[in-house]
Design a protein around this nucleic acid. Structure first.
Lengths: 224, 224
DNA sequence: GACGCCTCGTGACGGACGTCACCGCTCCTG
DNA sequence: CAGGAGCGGTGACGTCCGTCACGAGGCGTC
């Protein structure tokens, strides 16, 4: 939250204005697809408002969540950078306000602003670190452990604090959570059941309320 | 193999020479550690000769292989770019010839050569694609499937063809292969046993010879 | 307000893989 | 050459999780 009404992201206000002259504003409806895996990638989308889910689907139909893009983030920048087809599918989770920039215009923008290039390098570096951490997380601990870890993560990033200040409400379905931790919906549901039995959270339709963050944090790193 | 005696990598010969003036040559012994996860990252290492293994270790002691760096690749560039600590450990697999560049010198080098920055963006993009693909691979198919897939991959990248031209010899231990596919050594050994029983490869100490690449490729994508 | 869909919960079952344990072989070293 | 360490193969066992199946409840829609 910058409080400026302008997404924080990796650009300053001035730079955003420059990019805006090169792009075309566009709105996406909730659940609308921005692009699909395998398509040629001829444009970058800068998210101004709303969240975008980036995921891939395995041959067996399981969805794997790669990232949630927020205001200030770029979507589809990889294809613009290397010219290869989309490696994932992007879907708007909510109504999304965006700026669509063609790949050539984007490359030109980058080459003309070396300091922006360096900042873009930083965001890509962060993505690599994130992806590597996902690889480790996925191999560490059982599903209950991974669910707890992911919930704590999400709570820190997206949770809306309310009530006494220790409660955190997450708005997400169990399907999405399952894709995050790399498990089935059933296994995730059971893991939530175990955590619920401990009294650390409550569940409802499209909502998870964390009532004991410290305990969840402990469980997230426990060997068993 | 460019045949020039200069690593191919992401730089031209001229650019390599420029970078050389900013760096200090150094040799690492086989199995020597270049840096360790968690350390501050104040330098980049450009690999001139030999292979470098980049991996992380889970709390339970399992190793997860993130990348094998070859001549022309950079190691430790993330820390130089974003200034954060090393996110992984790098170990020389063989005697390694390298160029060590301090982080500030590297950043200066990048900022002074916009076209190089764009090329570096491309290599980072490739790393992200690679990491994402790992996430998918790891969730697709049983271990035999994943072992076959990884072997085919490695064969295409590193394999030395010999004999009738369809045989590919890989020099790697089963521990490393296990880390690569995200499984235990035992499970990997059993998977190799199954593939061996089909007559598609032979195994020996630190060596795997693929004798039926097409069959392995088929098995790599088979649901069962 | 009734129906239907979507989300969540849970049971049963089987299989794949992790864990532990042991053995044989090769290669290196003294 | 003898010993030992490193690597590879395999068996037994337990268990976690994927698969399939079904049911309950909330929410929207007509």
């Amino acid at each position: 939250m910058t409080g400026t009404g302008r997404p924080h992201g990796f650009l300053t206000g001035d730079e955003w204005r420059t990019l805006e002259t090169a792009g075309r504003p566009r709105r996406y409806r909730a659940r609308q697809r921005l692009f699909r895996e395998g398509e040629p990638g001829d444009h970058v989308i800068a998210v101004l408002g709303g969240q975008v889910k980036v995921s891939v689907e395995t041959r067996s139909g399981r969805e794997i969540l790669l990232a949630i893009k927020e205001p200030g983030d770029l979507v589809g920048e990889l294809s613009a950078i290397d010219g290869r087809p989309r490696s994932a599918t992007a879907i708007a989770l909510e109504p999304v306000d965006a700026l669509v920039v063609t790949a050539p215009a984007f490359v030109e923008f980058i080459e003309g602003h070396p300091r922006i290039a360096v900042r873009l390098l930083r965001t890509l570096a962060a993505q690599i670190r994130d992806a590597d951490r996902r690889s480790v997380d996925r191999d560490t601990g059982d599903i209950t452990c991974r669910v707890a870890r992911r919930l704590v993560d999400l709570a820190e990033r997206l949770g809306e604090h309310r009530g006494s200040g220790v409660e955190v409400t997450l708005v997400l379905g169990q399907d999405d959570l399952a894709a995050w931790v790399g498990a089935t919906r059933e296994a995730t549901s059971r893991a939530l059941g175990r955590l619920r039995a401990e009294g650390w959270l409550t569940t409802a339709r499209q909502r998870i309320v964390l009532t004991d963050l410290p305990a969840l944090r402990r469980r997230a790193s426990e060997p068993a």
